[in-house]
Amino acid sequence: MKYAKKSLLVVLSGLMCLALIAACGSKSTPTPAAPVAEATEAPKVTEATEAPQGESAISLSGSTTVQPLAEKLAEAFMAANAGVRIDVQGGGSSVGVKAAGEGTSDIGMASRDVKDTEMTEFPNLQVFVIARDGIAIVAHPEVPVGDLTVDQVRDIFSGKTTNWKDVGGEDQSIILVSREEGSGTRAAFEEMVMGKETVIAATAILQPSNGSVRTTVSTTPYSIGYLSFGYLDESVKALSIGGVAPTEPNAADGTYPIVRPLNMLTNGEPTGAVKQFLDFILSEAGQKMVVEDGYIAVK
């Protein structure tokens, strides 16, 4: 019994030893690791070059707002076209623009317009608007104000208007809730509401997702924030802008002013499977899925 225990110990420590030596070896000598990495990357490359002959793969990356929609579209497309594989990754709008421009992804996704600086960096970018998404201004449910103009929203978020009484509410300070720097929703809000000159006040509470903005606004009295249409529910009060309610029909016919494009980007004119996929998204079937997901069709 005792002997068995001891020999088990020897075997175990021997195994650990081997594992550790192996771990050490790969760390201290980086040279053998390099060919391994090349070897794993190599098949991908050949797959891509073989694409026209049979199997083809399309990679997408970028905006986390577009990602869920793109995944559904990709599933439907793959079901109809056996032999095409589509990978969809997140990363954010800036990543999407960069990935398309540098060719690391076949298609980049962005939930905002491509900036001028990005256009000069990647002059061959082709922009396909696949859907539109409204951004609603939301307040705590007990805020009596129900309507603001775009100018009033700008003044509130820039910190110029700090009290609800200045826009027809109670004598209470306004608590701003915003998204973090780099978010596509924030970038679109800045572009369409704030303009180039004014910035969102630094005193705003920053929350890292649409969901946490909604929770914060719904639980903080006298707060105001902004949300993608897809995240609206009864826990927050969606304000109308210049008398126009934030609804999909109003956004579709252009009367609601804060609407952003959801973009797919390619470097140069799309060809082959990439073109087929984009054509599918813009087809009647594809646009029907866009509407089902709560976004506004472009056709």
């Binding site: 954010g92 990543v95 720097e181 005193t203 509470i205 920053l206 890292p208």
Partner: peptide, 20 residues
């Protein structure tokens, strides 16, 4: 309100590229 050094990294790293 304020922001901590750790919070700065965690809140923004998802979308950050380049110099950011």
């Amino acid at each position: 309100q304020a922001r901590t050094l750790t919070g700065n990294i965690a809140v923004e790293i998802n979308y950050a590229t380049g110099l950011h």
